[in-house]
Amino acid sequence: MGNDLPLDHALTAIREALAAAHDLSLVHVRRTTDPDSYITVMHHPNPAARPEQMNQHSAYAATLQEAGWEQALSLGPLVLIPNIPPADTAPDTHIATWSATIDDVPDPVDAAYEARHLQHDSDLTEAVWTITESTGRCHLIITDDSPANVPEPEPDHAGRVEFHTPAHDHANHTDSAV
């Protein structure tokens, strides 16, 4: 009898992030059912564990925040991660600020430009997007396609892009002609 449940990409990504620094045999990662937009991480230590091993929730929250789930909250006996897309959300799916769903796009910057093309007011040249990946990681992306920032138009998207990942803001960079 096989497992007929569809793969939950958010759960998988969260487990992978935790496995990089923690023993997964001591962790239960679950999606809540109603609503299904939360994931909980609970520590279930060996009863013979030392007292300092009993309260690992803050370490799990820190690991998840560093991996991009900046909204992970340490709540005592568990870690709560809110604002997770539904379990059936496909990989390469991004949700833009105003709830536009962008499918089959490999990265958040491409999703921001795709959302920019779907934007109703085409007279705007600069846009600020919060892009949520299928796993629940959020990114802030500023796109600017004003003529001053587009010296030579490119086929995909040209202009200035600022890419911010709140947890470890490794970007905070500006690319001209991305």
Rank of each mutant, 00 (worst) to 15 (best):
G136I: 04
T130S: 11
A158M: 02
T130H: 11
A87Y: 02
V109H: 01
D8W: 07
N46L: 14
R30E: 12
V41L: 11
L140V: 14
H170C: 07
A10I: 04
S122M: 11
I39C: 08
A87L: 08
A20W: 00
W129M: 05
A96N: 01
L78Q: 08
S25Y: 10
D23K: 06
D34P: 00
T33F: 11
D121C: 04
P91V: 14
A100S: 10
S122G: 04
N149Y: 13
A127M: 09
T101I: 15
G159I: 09
Q56E: 07
I142P: 00
T132N: 06
T101A: 09
P85R: 04
L64M: 06
A20H: 02
D121T: 02
I81C: 06
S58G: 08
D103C: 08
S58W: 10
G2E: 09
T97F: 12
A49S: 15
E154H: 09
D8R: 07
H44N: 04
A148K: 11
P106E: 10
D123Y: 02
D110W: 10
V178L: 14
Q65L: 04
D107R: 11
G68N: 05
L11K: 10
A49D: 10
A13R: 06
T40C: 11
V161F: 12
T89Q: 07
H94R: 01
L73M: 14
R160A: 05
P6T: 05
T125K: 15
G136N: 03
G136D: 02
C138L: 07
T63E: 01
F163G: 00
T97C: 05
T174S: 06
Y60H: 09
A49K: 04
D104H: 13
S122F: 02
P155W: 12
I102W: 07
A21D: 12
H157D: 02
A67C: 01
A19N: 11
E52H: 12
Y113N: 08
P6A: 07
V79W: 13
I84A: 05
G76S: 08
T143F: 07
I102M: 11
L73I: 13
T12Q: 15
I39R: 05
S146F: 01
L140C: 02
V109F: 05
L5E: 08
R31N: 03
A127T: 05
D88P: 00
T63C: 13
A19K: 12
I131R: 03
A62D: 12
L24S: 01
T12W: 10
L7R: 13
P51R: 07
A10F: 06
L11D: 01
A17P: 05
Y60G: 02
V109R: 14
E152H: 13
T63G: 01
L26I: 00
P47H: 06
A17V: 06
L124C: 09
T32F: 11
E70P: 00
S74C: 14
A87N: 02
E154L: 13
N55P: 00
I142A: 03
D36N: 14
I14L: 13
L124Y: 02
S37H: 14
D23S: 10
A13M: 08
M1L: 10
I84V: 15
C138P: 00
Q53M: 15
I84S: 01
A148L: 14
I95M: 06
